[in-house]
Design a protein around this nucleic acid. Structure first.
Length: 430
RNA sequence: GUGGGUGUAGCUCAGCUGGAUAGAGCACCAGAUUGUGGCUCUGGGGGCCGUGGGUUCAAGUCCCAUCAUCCACCCCA
């Protein structure tokens, strides 16, 4: 082979692509219901956008970006996440002049130079939403409830919704200071990584999986204890809204999101069915971002889901239902003249809206039948020189084994009727 | 970037302590009174045994390196 696919990428083959399409259909349906409009941004952006938008000190920017210099000497990066590009598009196209709030969604590939493992890839796909222009607790709750609804309708169960508030630029530094103070006294108990975190981002210590760090952090102050009046009130309201919608959540004061600039509400949806990567989606507020990108001060909240993880969890939970995409009609022929006539008929059927195929390998009638059986084709038109001379075709129902002679003029209408009468459950997709 | 497992046919794998032309199942193709699928039977195509080096009379098998892949750490979706 000339070259295998690049590490951490994957081909989505027929038989599996149907799952993806089903998920994408669901995404579009739900977004329509909730009033989110689709936005499509470029797959690559100027590197600067991510450095500023995601944060210089994040792992994404420090070691996971696919960055290259293009022929014009510009530094370009394959998008590692969807929020920064959408915010850029919001500012660049003046969407703040549209009726507020602006509610957008996106689906597409993202790129991160990580080492692949279960549920983690270098090219992966995210579905996400972004809401601009409202800081009402109700919109936080809507976004969270929508994420939960999405999971449920994707057929997932056994999920946990973790909820936290990380505070605003007023109270976040207070938490940070308290944590730094708390852990400095216990520095000896921390793992080397966390000793590093002590200076750079003490919030992350709360998130560490090391036993010793968890122990050390047992009585650490959490964000919830340090919120200012405004933030505490906002968080209370968000919870009340969720209660009203009967969305159950776990309050988790140790939940920290990957992008360092998150403010206020943060949430994450976890499962045990995706290997070590337990998070299938998450999001929160990031109120300073629009302004940082040169737009007017604008609140924003959003989330992102990893579609591979969603599908992985679905497979573990046995919700995946494969679907055949074979055309429902196949023309089998015997004899040269019949073959020529069938070729014309094939296109007549298609023009009549009937997905159809025929043999292009010069195979025997028997081999053609065998193929049709294996390919999952429902109706086979059998045309030999006999039938041709009599102006008809044999229509065989491969499921029942019954067959009937139908005149060539009426065969398209006849088939259309047959396909309509197939119960919805066993009907194949055109 | 770090650690561990695994690389033999399209897929899942066998190949014992090194020993003759490298195997099975599934899949693919063809045939079984030359016009009818699913079951059965017969036959066929297809493998630089991941790659490069080494040890040996002899390497799919042992050693080293390298690459790929899987899982985990880090971190994230």
């Amino acid at each position: 082979m000339l070259a295998a696919r690049p590490r951490g990428t994957g081909d989505i083959l027929p038989g599996e692509v149907e799952k993806w399409r089903r998920l994408e259909d669901l995404i579009r349906r739900i977004c329509r219901e909730y009033g989110y409009a689709e936005i499509r941004t470029p797959v690559f952006e100027h590197t600067e956008l991510f450095r500023r938008g995601v944060g210089e000190t994040t792992d994404i920017v420090e070691k996971e970006m696919y960055t290259f210099t293009d022929r014009g000497g510009r530094s370009i990066t394959l998008r590692p996440e969807g929020t920064a590009p959408v915010v850029r598009a919001y500012v660049e196209n003046g969407l703040y002049n549209r009726p507020q709030p602006v509610k957008l969604f996106y689906v597409g590939p993202m790129f991160r130079y990580d080492r692949p493992q279960a549920g983690r890839f270098r090219q992966f796909h995210q579905f996400g939403v972004e809401v601009f222009g409202s800081d009402a607790p109700a919109i936080d709750a809507e976004v969270i409830a929508m994420a939960v609804d999405f999971c449920a309708r994707a057929g997932l169960s056994d999920l946990e919704l973790h909820l936290n508030s990380l505070g605003c630029p007023e109270c976040r530094p207070v938490l940070r200071e308290k944590l730094a103070h708390f852990f400095r006294r216990r520095e000896a108990e921390l793992c080397p990584d966390c000793r590093e975190r002590l200076e750079r981002n003490p919030l992350r210590i709360l998130d560490c999986k090391e036993e010793r760090c968890r122990n050390a952090g047992k009585d650490a102050p959490t964000s919830l204890g340090c919120l200012c009046h405004k933030c505490a009130g906002h968080f209370q309201s968000v919870k009340r809204c969720l209660d009203r919608l009967q969305v159950s959540y776990l309050e988790n004061g140790r939940l920290v999101r990957g992008l360092d600039y998150y403010t206020g509400t943060a949430f994450e949806i976890m499962t045990r069915d995706t290997g070590a990567q337990s998070s299938i989606g998450g999001g929160g507020r990031y109120d300073g971002l629009v302004e940082a990108c040169g737009g007017p001060p604008t609140p924003r909240i959003g989330y992102a889901f990893g579609l591979e993880r969603l599908i992985l969890a679905g497979e573990k939970q046995g919700t995946a239902v494969p679907e055949s995409s074979a055309p429902p009609v196949f023309i089998a022929t015997a004899g040269e003249k019949a073959g020529e006539a069938a070729f014309e008929l094939l296109f007549k059927l298609r023009r009549a809206g009937l997905p159809a195929g025929m043999d292009y390998l010069g195979r025997s009638l028997k081999a053609q039948m065998k193929y049709a059986g294996k390919a999952g084709i429902r109706f086979v038109l059998i045309i030999g020189d006999d039938e041709l001379a009599r102006g008809l075709a044999v229509v065989r129902d491969m499921a029942s084994g019954g067959q009937e002679e139908v005149s060539l003029e009426e065969v398209a209408a006849y088939l259309a009727l047959c396909l309509e009468n197939i119960p919805a459950g066993e009907r194949q997709r055109p």
